[in-house]
Every structure is written in structure tokens, then in C-alpha cells.
Design a binder for these strands. Structure first.
Lengths: 210, 210
DNA sequence: TAGATTGTTAATCGATTAACAATC
DNA sequence: TAGATTGTTAATCGATTAACAATC
């Protein structure tokens, strides 16, 4: 049983969009939505949406559409946001602090369990209800709190060593904002988020006069 | 002349990675690099790199490799980072401030030309050497300073109206961090950066016990 | 039953990878 | 010349879109 077909990465990345729109629809009292309507809201074709959902099951009713509350529930479970998820931030600079205070994460049950920094000036500071801890305690704290997700907002040279510590401490997923690739065992999910890429891609389009 | 072949989006997004690695190589005195070596550094196959570069010209020397300084220069021009690029941030919350202070952008010649917020408490605050201006002046200021890139770090409901103002003021590219789609004419390049997507995609992998 | 809309199979499109000729 | 490495053409792979049967 289980995943015989590999789910395309783009499909996984669209699920959060579906979830968000469904939540908004639910809040405005809508009970049923068609893939056509959902597609209009998100700027995605209805076929794409049906194809994506079909990877996980038959959630709709032919001739009718999808039950908003039910589909929300299904996607919530698929994405694993039906339970609190603890994450730690390493690097309490501007970006680390901004992510720590980002309310969107809390809405989906993500809890900032710890925030670390190597700079003595930052240690002890309060950020989003958490005291900044010394980066020396990453392994210890992450292990004892059972934190599963690590967010890296450290300078590039620190990224790999900190990632190693996080992995050793039991983290299973790493969200890396440092502009450098990190190596990790295949069972650790690493997501590279390079902000420079975003800005330079925009710049490219300006440069092409497009 | 010109773009007869459409450049794949993934190719454009890899160019900044090449540029970064080349800069590091250049700084450590390396003068020539092969696609093989560059690929090893970045975790990308050498064929991929050669294919990507070939869209823009013949930059290498067969049997030798690529001249680091020359290739840097070429990519710099392709990406349009060979001249100062002005950008404005709308939304001086935590994320907006973090982006305003992000030093990586400055390194590539991006200049924060203005930062705006609608909240009277934030107006007048100094962020990264700029006073936060009232969002009422977006159109006026963006137009008079000739700002071409707008960064949106406003709440979802404000995203579209602010985007409209930016476009009216002459912005040609928008980097949208608000978790909502924005509509824009096709000649305006819009990049959607949804942080929730990143975290939920990681969560998905945890949920699948992968 | 007729109309609407899903879920699935087949066709197309786009990007990556493989193979290899060109050439330094 | 032999070895190395690029640039390009062809093959493969993966994702999206089209077509349509199933069914509410």
C-alpha cells in the first residue's frame, strides 16, 4: 500500500495554496467549490487542481464539486499541519527575527520552540516570546525538545556546521536561507531559499527589457 | 537578432548561483574553472551548466574551461546587475525591515531607494538609512525616483491595491511576499514568494515519514 | 433524463540528461 | 598528436494540458 506513484514537487507546493483559498472560502461561509472556481481564484487551471488532488484520493463529487470543509481537512492531513510542529531558528539576525515573528506560521500550527545565535550580544534577547540561546546549545536543546524542523538564517560559512549539529540532534527537515548549498543525508529534507535568486531573476527581466 | 529561443525559467534561476560561486572562486584567486568543477561545488551536473550558459553565448574554451573573471562579467550583464538597481519596499513590518537591512542585495548593486508603510506609528522610523514614508506617497516617490522594482511585504488584502499603485508609478517588476496572488499586465514581471509554501512543503515530507 | 463536474488516460510540452562532434 | 573539455543535437524524463468516460 501507499505511495506507488511519486508525487510531483510542484503538486506539493500547490497544496498550501489550495489550503489557503479553502480557508478563506470556508470563513466566508462557502460550503462547496468546483475546481473551476478554485482555479479562477488562484490563477491555476481546473485540470491542474483535479490532477493534483487525484494523487491523494477522490475528494470531490462529480457534478457537484468539493466540500470545502472536507477538502481543507484532507489537505491539512496530507501536509501534516493537523498537529503542532516545533521548529528552531538558528541565527537571530534581522531575517531570523522576522521569521520568528511571522504570524503566518503560527496559523498553521508551527511553534517556534527555540532561537539561537552565536553572537553574545544577541544571547538573552527576547524574540517572539523566546530568549535567544547560545548556539553552543543547539544539539542539546533541539534534542531535548524534540524539534523536527530547523531554520537556518546564519551567514554562509556557518550553514554547514550548524546543519550538521541540527541533523545530529534529530531534526528531519532544514529550511536554509543561507546563500550556500548544504549537504545532508537523503532522509533529511533540505529546502534552499535563496533570496538573492529572487531579486536577480527580477533584475534579469528588467535587463532584457521585457 | 535576439532571443529566438525562450530561456527556461530554471536556467535563469541558476545563473545567480553560478555568479555567486564564480565570485567566491575569483576571490580565492582561481582564474579558470571547468563546468565539471563548478558543478561539483553547486551540486548541479556539468551538462546542465554548459546547456544553461550556451543559451547566452559561447563563453568557454574547449579543452580548457571558463575564464572565471570573464564568465562573472558575462553573467553580471545578463542578469542586469552591472548597474545600480533601485528598489522600494512597501510594508515596514518585521519582514520588510529584514529585507531592507539584508546586505546580500547591496552586494549586487541593489539600492533601497524608499520604504513605505501605512501605519502612522511606523512612519518616520529609520530603517537601513531610510525614513519610513507614508504609503500615501508611493506613486509620487516611486515615480520621481525612477524606482523599477517594488517589494511587497504588506498584509494580503493590501497587496493588490499597492501593486496597482506601484505599476501606475512605473515599476516594472514586483516581488510579492504577501500570501496572495496579484494581477498585473503581462509586461510587469511578478514573482510570488510565499513563505508558508516553504514551511508546509517541509512539513509534508515529515508527515509522509520520509 | 440533462447538465455539471469529477477523475483518468492519452497527447503535448518543456526541461534534463546522454551522446558525441568540435576544438583548444 | 593525445587528452580535456566545450557546445550541440538527439533521447529521455517529468509535468502540464487535452480529451473524455464516469457519475452525481
Amino acid at each position: 500500500m501507499g505511495k506507488l506513484v511519486l508525487i510531483p514537487r510542484p503538486t506539493i507546493e500547490r497544496l498550501p495554496l489550495y489550503l489557503r483559498s479553502l480557508t478563506l472560502l470556508d470563513e466566508s461561509g462557502v460550503e462547496v467549490v468546483s475546481s473551476e472556481e478554485l482555479g479562477r481564484i488562484l490563477g491555476i487551471t481546473s485540470v491542474q487542481i483535479r490532477k493534483d488532488l487525484a494523487y491523494f484520493g477522490e475528494f470531490g463529487r462529480r457534478g457537484v464539486g468539493y466540500d470545502v470543509a472536507d477538502l481543507m481537512q484532507q489537505i491539512t492531513e496530507i501536509l501534516g499541519v493537523n498537529r503542532p510542529n516545533k521548529f528552531a531558528i538558528v541565527g537571530a539576525g534581522h531575517l531570523g527575527q522576522a521569521l520568528a515573528r511571522y504570524e503566518g506560521f503560527t496559523e498553521y500550527g508551527f511553534m517556534l520552540a527555540a532561537i539561537f545565535d552565536a553572537d553574545p550580544k544577541k544571547i538573552g534577547m527576547e524574540v517572539a516570546g523566546q530568549q535567544v540561546l547560545s548556539a553552543d546549545y543547539v544539539t542539546e536543546v533541539v534534542k531535548s525538545l524534540g524539534i523536527q524542523i530547523g531554520v537556518l538564517t546564519v551567514p554562509a560559512p556557518a550553514a554547514q556546521p550548524v546543519a550538521d549539529q541540527l541533523i545530529k540532534a534529530g531534526v528531519r527537515a532544514i529550511w536554509n536561507f543561507a546563500p550556500t548549498r548544504i549537504e545532508a543525508p537523503i532522509d533529511i529534507e533540505v529546502r534552499q531559499e535563496n533570496l538573492i535568486v529572487g531579486l536577480l531573476a527580477l533584475s534579469y527581466h528588467l535587463a532584457q527589457g521585457k
